[in-house]
Design a protein around this nucleic acid. Structure first.
Lengths: 193, 193, 193, 193
DNA sequence: GATGAATGAGCGTTCATTCAT
DNA sequence: TATGAATGAACGCTCATTCAT
């Protein structure tokens, strides 16, 4: 079950494609295996079970968001700049990968409570970094120092998420990136207090 | 398939409980029937199939939100008051019915694309009413007249939704209603521009 | 369960239509009831169960064949004339009632062994009359006196039956009655020995 | 879905037994699987669905009739000899396999129209070969050159079929093979004209 | 007699997982 | 490691029959 071997990533990527193209419930293990070019049984040399594939998909892909956000925080000067770059990054990554957007915004949410609980655990790290930005902003006076961080974080993440989900549901018919400045303006106004 | 007979509502309510307690995929028709105190076959006198039960659950329950919001819009004086009351209503209805909250925020989202598309159609009416409030606010000067209504609506709904979902995922461990004033403050600040 | 009341015949006739138009397996009791213009439950005031309806259909309709054949035997002069008239009658009755032909030749044969055993019991009387004609022919020298009556009867009935079934399966696309003289010629040649 | 693997024939044979012993409607897939000594799911590696099993049963078994008849036609000298051998073969194959006789004469006829249409397509080849014999006989003067081939074919097949069906319905209580010479004599007389 | 709402047993099929090769 | 044939548990839906009115 070595997660560094090339076949591991090969299967994770195949899962994204299989789920995006067939839908969550139609992405049987055999389809993922076929897409990955391996036998059904081979999947089980790298993953404990199907649930493990799905969680790994999220983990691997979410990793990119966390890495990018870590860098954004390091390089950014002001909290507002950091928040702005975070939103841009979030929108850009998904705007550039429709398969991934479909999987994270629609398909993976059809998984059962257990899986989504685990997915939420993975998301935690990303939200922790967001909290960091918000707290810095409150301390430095860029954001309302009296606001509730949890609620503020939920506003930021909920707004971004809803935006992207709507775009996916509309089958990418408009340019997601055009919404970014509007989202930023509204959110920053909200946070300024 | 008469939707006015008492058994119709009886089954819809039973479905909410069965789904909340067992999870979407474990809420077999037989469990819903048992919960409703009717025979399995009786379900099919009132619903075309299982999918129809789920859509009806959403329809019936969402109906309350739409009715309440309609009244709120009629009675409210200012757009801000209307928005405020809408948020209060949304939080209160779900804070008072944990089963319903579980079903709408977690379980029903596991349904397949078809069902979710239909659920979205039902949601549309609610979002249209929200748009009404926002546009009135833009016209009257309460909200930023230059903002994008769609993005603003996504912020309001996304923030509310994310808040409630987090609360459900945390298994109702804190008081949802305490978040309402904070959510309102943040959102209204954001919309004011 | 009075079989003389008008509703009894009404339901039998409705069954023929319902079965002919929907097929044996799609002719649910509720469809037969609807076709007859009575409630589902009413069926059970006249018939023990669904099987009883089907057997009654055959019984009532077969009755016509037996009555006609009895008269043919009484009025006929020679065994060959009687056989000839029997074949004509058999073809004519079904050529005039496509619904009935469909039901007896195709649909009713989809019933289970039990029902078909009972149908065969009803058929017995008709075959007994046919035997009478054959035996008279053997005695009078019109037919081969050394032939096996059972086998001869099976030839006559099997040939008639196969002819009509093929015609039904070809959806009545040709004129069944044109085959009658040919069938008669072949059979009588066979029987003459 | 490889039809050459041993398990394919294994399941077809099991289906004949399961249907003969339980009746068409009581021969559930699970019973066929059990009889074949495989898991339920294995059935679906070799057959598209239950209907496909039934059609395959007929196809495989009818194949024997067609093969035998082809050989009979090749080896036979006169049309009468060929017809005679065909009847013998038809009777012998079924006299030697009561299960198969039950299935072809009684149980398979309970299938729905679709299946029976497909079964009829398979039967067509057998009837075509019979037609060949009849036409040769008409040409060579063994059979009445003025007879209608279709009607003649229906007499031959109908007589054979009715004979065997009666024997099955009488639960094999008499020796089917004793009827063969009688059937042949009657039919050949009929065809001679 | 007549109704029709309610009943509940019964089954074909899918698919994640295993394991002999 | 890798394979893929085989497994078998699990469930939505139909429809003949009943029975309170």
């Amino acid at each position: 079950m070595n997660r560094d071997k090339p076949k591991y990533k090969q299967i994770v990527d195949a899962a994204v494609i299989a789920i995006a193209e067939n839908g969550y419930h139609q992405a049987q293990v055999s389809k993922i295996a076929k897409q990955a070019g391996v036998a059904d049984g081979t999947i089980y040399l790298y993953f404990k079970n199907k649930e493990d594939i799905l969680i790994s998909v999220f983990q691997e892909k979410m990793g990119v968001f966390v890495e990018n956000l870590t860098e954004i925080i390091q390089k950014g000067k002001t909290p507002i700049e950091k928040l702005s770059n975070m939103i841009d990054n979030h929108f850009q990554v998904l705007a550039n990968d429709h398969h991934l957007a479909t999987v994270t915004q629609l398909e993976l949410r059809q998984s059962n409570k257990d899986i989504r609980m685990k997915i939420n655990m993975i998301l935690k790290e990303y939200l922790r970094l967001l909290d960091e930005i918000l707290i810095e902003g409150m301390t430095k006076g860029d954001f309302d120092p009296t606001m509730d961080v949890r609620v503020a974080r939920q506003m930021v993440f909920g707004t971004i998420d809803e935006n992207i989900t709507t775009w996916v549901m509309n089958e990418f018919r408009y340019d997601l990136l055009e919404s970014a400045p509007k989202v930023k303006k509204l959110l920053i106004n909200g946070l300024k207090g």
